[in-house]
Design a protein around this nucleic acid. Sequence first.
RNA 1: UGGGCUAUGGCCAAGCGGUUAAGGCACCGGACUUUGACUCCGGGAUCGAUGGUUCGAAUCCAUCUAGCCCAGCCA
Length: 544
Amino acid sequence: MEINHFINTIIENDIKSKKHDRAITRFPPEPNGLLHLGHARAIITNYSMAKQHGGYFNLRFDDTNPVKEDTLFVEGIKKDIAWLGCEWENLFYASDYFDEMYERAMLLVKKGKAYVDDLTAEEIRAYRGDLKNPGKNSPYRERSIEENTSLFEGMKNGEFPDGSKVLRAKIDMSSPNMNMRDPVIYRIQRAHHHNTGDKWCIYPMYDYAHPIEDAVEGITHSLCSLEFEDHRPLYDWVVRECEMKNIPRQIEFGKLYIANQVTGKRYIKALVESGAVIGWDDPRLITLSGLRRRGVPPQAIHNFIHALGLPKSQGETELDMFYQYVRDYLKSTVPRINAVLDPLKLVIDNYPEDEIEYVEAENNRDNEALGTRLMPFSKEVYIEREDFIEEKPNKKWKRLALDVEVRLMHAYFIKANSVVKDENGKIIEVHCTYDKETKSGSGFVDRKPNGNIHYVDAKKNKKAKFRLFDDLITDFEDKDTPFSEKVNPDSLIEVEGFIEESIDPLVGDSFQFTRNGYFALDQDSIKDGLVFNQTVSLRSSFKK
RNA sequence: UGGGCUAUGGCCAAGCGGUUAAGGCACCGGACUUUGACUCCGGGAUCGAUGGUUCGAAUCCAUCUAGCCCAGCCA
C-alpha cells in the first residue's frame, strides 16, 4: 500500500531533486515511560517512510537527562516497537554521542558561538525576558574564547558544583523566538547515567543534542511533533554552526491524541503507583503494552494509523474509530466460538438423559481456512441469562421466551415451556423441548426461528473468567481530581462462565465469542485457570 | 497583546482555480442474515467569518475571528 501525505511528498521531492537517494528516519523516545497508541503514529510514520523510500529506520533512545530515565523502560519500549513490527536498522542511544557532542560544543566555544554563563537558573529566566519583551545579555556573555574554553573544560572535569554554570549558545537575546535567546546547551548534573555511568557530570540539552544525533546518524528527515516548530531555527543553527556533514531536515506533524484517554506519562505513572491500574500494561490503558494484553493485533494499529492520515493540524480522534479497525482485522482472522458469560441453565426435557452428540460448526464463516470443530450438545446446556425472558416483550425480541422457538446455533430449534425459580424469584432453570427435525445442516426450512442464540454444553465445557472493560475515566472535564481518585468503578468487571470444551488457548490467543465480542487469553491464566480479556465488543444495533 | 502554527459535516480526513465537495468512524432509516455481527442500499456540510481577484474559489489576495504551541539548567 502506497502511503501518501505531505511528508511523503517532501521526501519524494528530495529524492527527485537528488538531495537524497533514500530516506533515513528515526524514532527517538526518552526512556522515562512506556509508549501508547499516540506514539504509534510517530513510529509507524518514521518506519513506513524509510521503508517506502529505500532507506532504514533507527531506534534511538534520547537519554540526555539521567535523572529522569530508567533502563526498565528501554526494554519495554523495544518490546513494543518490535511487537508493532517496525524493525529498526540500528539501536542507538543519544549517550553514544556524548564525546562527539562535547567536541562540537568546544568547537562552538572556539568559534565564539557559545559561552559559559555563571548566572543562576532564576537569573537566566529573568534575563530571558518574556513573550512581549526582549531579553538582555548576560554579563558573562562577552567572556573571551580562552576563558570560555578553560571554563567549559572545567565544567566537564567536575571543577564546579551542579547548577553553578551552564554553557549557552550565543545567538540573539532579543529574538522573538524564545528558543533563540541564548539557549542553554549544557548543564552540570552529577547523576549516574544508565549507559555512561559516572563518566560525565555535564549533560547536553535536547535542543543541542538532537540535531547532532540526527546528523551523526545520517538521518535525512527528522520527524517530530508540532510543538517543535519553534525549535527548528535552533535545530538548523546547531547543525550549521557545529559544521555537521550530514544535514537533516526537521519536519513536524500533529500528534495523535485519542479523546478521553489517559496518555501523559506522569499521569499513567501516578495511576500505576497508586494501584488504580495494575501496571503500564493494564488493558484499560491505551499503552501499546495494554493494547497488546487486551488482544489488539498490531496490524489493526497499522491500518488505523494509515487510515487517519498525517495532519499538520491538531485534533483528537475518537476511540471508536480505533475499535472499528480492531474488529475489522479480527473479523476474518480469528475463530468464532461460543462462550456464555452469564449462564442460565436450559433443560431440554425431551432429549435423552445420557446422550451426547457432537454437532459440526464452522470456525469462521468468512474464512473457511479456519476449518470446523465439533460441539457437544446434550440434555442440559447454558445460555446467556439475557437471552431469555418469560414473556416476549415485542415483535422485535429475537431471543428465547416462553412458547417461543429459537435456534441454538449449530444445533436445534428449541421452544421454552416453563421456568424454575428460586425463593427470590430468580429464574434458575428454563425447561424446553427440542425438535429433532430442525438439526442444523439438515436443510430444514419449514419454520423460521425467533432468532438464533448460542450455548455451551452444561457438562462438556471449560470454566473461564471474563474481564470486561469500560472507560477508565469517565469525567475528563473535572481537572481538579487526580485520575487515580476518579477511576470508573465499572471500568473492570470480571464475570465467570464457560467456553467450549474443545478450545485450548495459549496466552495472547484471540477469539470471537459469538454474539459477545472479541476476547484474548490473559497472562493471568497461568495461575488462575482461563482468564479472557475483552478486546472489543461486537457492534450492536440492539435497542431495548 | 512578540513569535510560530492550524481552521472542510459530531470525530478523523481527501481536495492544491472548473468535481453533484472523496472516503472512514459515529449516527438515523431499510434489506439480508444460523452472530440484533458481517454485508448491502439510502440519509446529511458550500468548506471559521467578511470583503476582494476571476467567466468560475474550499482552493488566489486582504482583513478579521477562534484554537493550539513557546518565557525548563525537561524532551
